[in-house]
Simulated assay, not measured.
Amino acid sequence: MAKHIYCRHSIELEVPFFDVDAMYIVWHGHYVKYLEVARCAFLSAIGYDYNEMGRQGFSWPVVQMNLKYVKPARFGQHIRVEAAVVEIESCLRIDYTISDSESGAKLTKASTTQVAVSLENGEMQFQTPESWLSAVQRHPTFEAV
């Protein structure tokens, strides 16, 4: 059974020189940064960025991350980072695909899981806050289950 995708968001980036190694391929640790840039763009698009999370009384730490490198990204390459939101009720789980912008060739698959933690008492929330659910439902591509 295929996963339900609540919404999608994507960004385009050009691989900068300072992200590559001596062979002009992206050092593996920089892919995490690309995921963060895509996630921040999605959160800004729904009006629920990290500042808003704090105003709502929550932090959202990453509790799990998985990456599978398929092909290397290279200096100067234009890449697309697509974020597919696959869980919103018990956590924020996003599946990512990084691909070559021109050919569409898949470079990396990844996922991150974040949970809401109360800033007041430091307790993990086992259901995501209503403020989060309302925000994600405003994304233009949102589809309920």
Rank of each mutant, 00 (worst) to 15 (best):
M1F: 12
M1I: 13
Y6T: 08
Y6L: 08
C7Q: 03
H9P: 02
S10T: 06
I11A: 01
L13M: 10
E14T: 15
V15A: 01
P16E: 01
F18G: 13
V20F: 02
V20N: 06
M23W: 03
I25S: 06
I25E: 06
V26F: 00
H30A: 11
Y34F: 14
Y34M: 09
Y34A: 05
A38Q: 00
A38F: 03
S44W: 08
A45Y: 05
A45P: 05
Y48W: 14
Y50D: 00
M53E: 04
M53P: 00
G54A: 13
F58G: 04
S59C: 07
P61G: 09
N66Q: 10
N66T: 13
Y69V: 14
Y69R: 06
V70K: 12
K71S: 13
F75Y: 15
R80I: 15
R80K: 13
R80S: 08
V81R: 01
A84I: 05
A84T: 06
V85L: 14
V85C: 04
E87Q: 10
I88A: 05
E89Q: 12
E89K: 14
C91N: 11
C91H: 09
L92T: 11
R93Q: 15
D95W: 03
I98A: 02
D100F: 01
E102D: 14
S103V: 14
S103G: 14
K109A: 03
K109F: 01
K109Y: 00
Q114K: 07
A116Q: 02
L119V: 04
N121T: 07
N121C: 10
G122I: 09
M124L: 11
Q127P: 06
L133S: 08
S134I: 13
A135C: 11
V136C: 01
V136A: 01
R138H: 04
H139S: 02
H139I: 08
E143W: 04
V145A: 05
V145M: 05
